[in-house]
């Protein structure tokens, strides 16, 4: 691997941007494709599929048999609301390899006793979220039922292009949320990106079951939807 390719690869990884290295293992020829460049690449179908799966491997392509090294940042999950559902959702997400953070300014909820192995930040979203580097490899779930906490966090998640955004609440609650977020300048297209009612429809009743339905929906969003370049990556 040429040093300039290795340097570019490490720079992309450090910035939490996806990148694929294509290697012809016979000749040693190698090139690096950044996530933002995939759409314009001759191998874009293959590269997009690999990026979505996050899996390295050999691939027969029009350019011969090559090895694709796929580097995808580890996923994060940010939850507002240190509530019952979060107590189940956080450990499920951790088992799936997510780095989990819970934000809830209500200190009675946001206690380390209730969340022994999770990072819990007892601050309002405007203070807690910016340092978390929420990005397109982050799933965001709003669970407080309190617009004062959930709304600013949802706005942040939309701005940061999270791959999954979900909000707890009935259709009626979501309708009111629509009015509030529209008033805050959110477009119809952006509002439509919020999954609500949250979670896959598996008839979940208990908080733990709802957590399973939410996690299933997060996995579906990560693996089934085409990867796309963000504004940040295109820049």
């Amino acid at each position: 691997m040429k040093l300039d390719i290795l340097q570019a690869l490490n720079a992309e990884r450090a910035a939490r941007r996806a990148v694929i290295v294509i290697t012809d293992v016979e000749s040693g020829a190698q090139r690096l494709v950044k996530a933002a460049e995939i759409a314009a690449d001759p191998l874009h179908d293959t590269l997009e599929k690999r990026l979505r799966m996050g899996k390295s491997g050999m691939e027969d392509t029009a350019q011969g048999r090559v090895f694709l090294t796929v580097h995808v940042p580890s996923p994060k999950l940010v939850i507002t609301g240190a509530v019952h559902i979060s107590q189940a959702l956080a450990p499920i997400a951790q088992i799936l390899g997510y780095d989990v953070t819970i934000v809830d300014p209500r200190t009675a909820f946001a206690s380390s006793e209730r969340f022994p192995d999770v990072t819990v930040i007892a601050e309002w979203p405007d203070v807690a979220l910016p340092p978390l580097n929420v990005d397109r490899y982050t799933a965001f779930v709003a669970c407080t039922h309190d617009p004062k906490i959930d709304d600013p966090a949802l706005l942040h998640a939309l701005q940061r292009d999270c791959f999954y955004i979900g909000a707890l609440g009935s259709r009626k609650t979501h309708g009111k949320r629509n009015e509030r977020l529209k008033a805050a300048g959110v477009s119809d297209a952006d509002f439509a990106r919020i999954h609500a009612p949250i979670g896959l429809d598996i008839g979940a009743i208990s908080p733990a079951e709802i957590a399973v339905s939410i996690m299933g929906e997060i996995v579906q969003s990560l693996r089934q939807k085409p990867a796309r370049a963000t504004k940040a990556e295109a820049a």
């Binding site: 691997m1 040093l3 290795l6 340097q7 690869l9 490490n10 990884r13 939490r16 996050g54 390295s56 090294t69 796929v70 580097h71 995808v72 940042p73 580890s74 390899g97």
Partner: peptide
């Protein structure tokens, strides 16, 4: 591959920049 894997690629870059002969497997 998860980003949290031990950072071997960063080591490869650092070793190479330090003037060592380096290979990656």
């Amino acid at each position: 591959m998860l980003g949290r894997d031990e950072d071997i690629l960063k080591a490869a870059e650092d070793w190479s920049k330090a003037g060592r002969g380096v290979a990656l497997a």
